[in-house]
């Protein structure tokens, strides 16, 4: 019963219309001498306030899939709809948080970086935008560094700025492409906790790409498992309910093993991929 209540609070309970609808999406990209199929007829739906994880090994096309949702890439088959609208170009209604630290504009301070998309889209007046930017900078605990330039910050701080920048836009969906992968283990853990705390406050919808099973279970409310070469949906699982920080270790281990077994069931298969992390 407690789990049910928590599930309702976590927003796992589905509303009738999906926020994001990915239908039979096949993605291909060209390298200099190959046409690589990154994903094959991938199908999933994301509902409001879900923390939806794309999980899979290298080469399963999870990042490519995220870029397609971001509008950087057109599917060769199938369609991607956000709130019923066909996604065909990048836009500020789907803010991206990248893995790379160079996603912040080095010529703008922390505050200007967060402010820039707010002003560039013309959705807010200068004053309202400024208030909003400072609000979200405070949320990621960077008020003291609002006037610093990105190259003076640590990796974790840069990622926090990127998250603040994404959240300040209050997009329909936050797209995160392994945002913590380049961080050290301690910082990564802290950032995961912070992200969940932010989610508790604002209930944003996030599509999160990772290759780490523990991270997927910790961050996600729902996990899409993809198999590699080309990426195909293996399963769509519910993550564990969050119970005040640490999950029940038994259940955690069981789920980890289950996912591990599913991902590596056909690991004996010859690695035919080009080695390109899509």
């Amino acid at each position: 019963m407690i789990a049910d209540a928590r599930a309702a609070r976590d927003g796992v309970g589905e509303s009738p219309l999906p926020l994001l609808d990915v239908r039979g999406v096949t993605l291909q990209y060209k390298t200099s001498d190959h046409l690589v199929t990154a994903t094959f007829r991938v199908h999933f739906q994301v509902f409001r306030s879900e923390r939806f994880i794309l999980l899979g090994p290298s080469g399963c096309g999870k990042s490519t899939l995220l870029k397609a949702v971001g509008g950087y890439l057109q599917p060769v088959e199938g369609e991607i709809r956000l709130k019923g609208e066909l996604v065909n170009r990048p836009g500020p209604d789907r803010m991206m948080v990248f893995q790379e630290f160079d996603q912040l504009l080095p010529w703008k301070t922390v505050k200007e970086n967060v402010l820039f998309p707010l002003c560039a889209t013309g959705r807010f007046s200068r004053k309202a935008a400024e208030q909003r930017a400072m609000h979200y900078i405070a949320k990621v605990n960077l008020t003291k560094f609002a006037d610093s330039l990105p190259h003076t910050l640590s990796g974790g701080m840069k990622q926090r700025v990127a998250i603040a920048r994404g959240m300040a836009m209050e997009p329909d969906m936050l797209l995160m492409d392994e945002p913590f992968a380049a961080l050290d283990a301690l910082t990564r853990r802290k950032m995961q906790d912070e992200l969940l705390m932010l989610w508790d406050e604002t209930r944003f919808t996030v599509l999160f790409v990772t290759h780490s099973i523990p991270e997927a279970i910790k961050i996600g409310s729902r996990i899409l498992l993809l198999s590699p070469h080309p990426g195909q949906v293996k399963a769509e699982l519910n993550s564990l309910p969050r119970s005040g920080g640490e999950a029940d270790p038994g259940a955690l281990q069981a789920l980890e093993h289950k996912i591990h077994a599913m991902l590596f069931a056909d690991a004996v298969e010859a690695p035919t991929g080009t080695g390109v992390e899509a």
Partner: peptide
């Protein structure tokens, strides 16, 4: 490429994309 994607993520196109992202970068 990341910085280009950031610029396009903001919905910048054409001259404003050149002026706000490409020239400073």
């Amino acid at each position: 490429p990341t910085m280009r994607m950031v610029g396009r993520n903001y919905g910048l196109t054409g001259l404003s994309y050149v002026a706000q992202i490409l020239i400073p970068a």
